[in-house]
Each structure stands twice: as C-alpha cells, then as structure tokens.
Design a protein around this nucleic acid. Structure first.
Lengths: 154, 154
DNA sequence: GTAAAACTACTCGGATATTTTTTGTCCGAGTTTGAGTGG
DNA sequence: CCACTCAAACTCGGACAAAAAATATCCGAGTAGTTTTAC
C-alpha cells in the first residue's frame, strides 16, 4: 500500500474544512511533508475528479463535492488505483493445465481474495471525509479546527 | 501485494493433497513458474512454520499441520508479512501539531484503515487450505486430484 | 552374511544481480491579480 | 472616473532522477539412500 494514501486523506480532511482554495505548498507545510511529492498525490486526486485545481494567484485545491459525499475508498482508489490481488491463472499452466473452456468460473484462490478485497472496500466506502472531520473535532482540543482554518487563511 | 502469494497458496493446496514430501523443483514444474523464485517463497513459508523442509534424497516440502488448520491468512501473512497500512502520525507534525499526551487514541484515519484491514483478515482467516482443495475437487474434472497425485509421485 | 564406512545424488538455505515500483525533485505552461495608463 | 493594457507573481501540470522493493538467479552446506569393503 502506498504511503501517500495517508497524506491524501489528511489533505482531503483539511480541504473539507476550508472554504477557500488551499495551495499545495500550504498543505505540505501544514502536514510537514515533502511539497514536491505531495503535489504528485494531489495531481492523482485531481485526475480522479475528487479535487479541483484553481490556478493563478490565490489559487489552490478545492473539494469538488460535499465532504459527506467523498468516501475514504474514493481517495484510496484515486491514489493507489491498483486492485490488491491479480490472478495470473496458474491453473491454466503446467503439465496438468486445466483447459480454458473449463475455466468459466474464477479460480477458488482468486475468489477468496476477491471476496476479502470486497469487504475491505465496503468497509472503506462506509466512512466519509465528513465523518473523519467530525471525529477529529470531537477528539482534538476544542477550537482546533478553527485555529487550523485561521492558519490556512494567513 | 506481492505476486508470490498466489504461488504460495497453490503450493499449499498441492502439498495438502500430497502425503509424501514434494521438492521445490517439482512444484515449480507443476505450476510452470520460476524454480529459483518459488524456492524463496517456500523459504518464507518454512520460516513461518507452515511447511517443513525434509532434506536429502527423496526429500522436499511438507505441510506441518492438517490442511483444515491452515488458513489463507496464514499463507498471506507468511509471504507478504507487512501490514497494509502504517500510520506515520501526521497529526503530531506541522505548525498545529497535536501534543503527544493528547494522542492516546489512534488517529481516526488509522482507525478506519485498521478496521478495514481487520475485516479483510477475518475474511481470509475464514477459509482454509482444505476448503480450497475441496473447491478445486468439485470444480475441476473428476479425477484431477488423483492425476495430480500420480504426476507428483513420478 | 553382516555391519560399518565411504560415496554419490539429491535436497534446502542464504548470499547475490536485475528489473520494476515507489518515492522524491525540478522547471515550464497557464492564470489571476494588481498596478499603470490613456481616454 | 472608468476601461483597457500590461507586467508580475503565483498556481498547477508533467517530465526528470534517486531510492526502495520486488523479482529472478546462482552456488554452497547438509542429509538420505546406495554402494563398497572389511571382517
């Protein structure tokens, strides 16, 4: 799993709290991470249509949808993209290869892996950016979100 | 996710069906994969204690437990090892870092990821090598398992 | 004939290259802002 | 006073390296079976 997923999620939480566009450089400073590399992750989010980039002075990134309509799975798929397991059809190889016409049903191993992947995705789909923001607000010290908004403004 | 997981699972299914030790070279030929690299995966399974290596002539690999007592998760963890998501505590960095004494509860993002990882693991833990073997037996042509056993013997 | 010893063939195990993916960095194209200028 | 032009500063986007991980390979250490040999 790509480590940039964590950064992307944190950025989405911040973007969901801010109303004005936030530049990538400010997001990087806020989280104390490499600005150049974070830019790459934000590009991935932009390509996936999760965030919108506003260019020019006082530009930056902006969530395209309501935070309650963006799931954690959306962010993970945008940045990681790849499916977790890919069946290479080993059963069709070797001296006792199963004939192809007998392989209409997926290989049992692929089925188990696919099932696990499905519940994993379902679990991530059940949580939205808004949920994360709410949890941060209730866990952290009161006023933290307001202070963050103020810091982003300057 | 490492591609060797698929090979490892196929090998465990074969080993669960065979009673005599099976050399790594034979497993590689059976699945038509690189013998040298498969050896590495088998080493990982051996270190994890899932299989036992018998040296010398007519030696090979052998399952240490009953196929019904080996779960798919065991194999995946033995070969991949790493946890899917690792929280780097981003919240404790940057200009608005959360103080450490306020971080007794895991970060919400880490919690969501951990929960998804848990259901993923639960799903893989629910299936054993014996289950896979049974499915192969019912899906493939009748007598396939016997032919495989015969081929391994020669 | 039997038991011990040596030999051979075969096994795994770890140390070693090569390729692919991930991580990290840089500079150019494009846009908004604002000031300056002429009407 | 207003509209237009122009320049400057700031933004993202994709092209460009370095590091890490995965993939693939090889040869040496060790063991079981077999043969030989001595008694």
């Amino acid at each position: 799993m790509s480590g940039g997923v964590e950064w992307g999620l944190h950025c989405c939480v911040v973007l969901g709290s801010a109303s004005d566009p936030v530049p990538a450089a400010k997001l990087a400073e806020f989280h104390d991470v490499s600005p150049s590399y974070l830019a790459k992750q934000l590009q991935l989010l932009s390509r996936a249509g999760l965030v919108r980039a506003v260019q020019g002075q006082s530009g930056g990134y902006l969530l395209t949808r309501d935070p309650a309509d963006v799931t954690v799975l959306d962010v993970v798929e945008a940045i990681d993209g790849e499916p977790g397991f890919r069946c290479t059809e080993v059963r069709q190889r070797g001296p006792l290869a199963v004939p192809q016409e007998r392989c209409v049903v997926p290989c049992p191993i692929a089925r188990v892996m696919g099932s696990a992947d499905r519940v994993w995705r379902d679990s991530l789909r059940a949580v939205t950016i808004a949920d994360l923001t709410a949890e941060v607000g209730s866990t952290a010290l009161p006023g933290t979100l307001d202070r963050a908004r103020e810091w982003l403004r300057s």
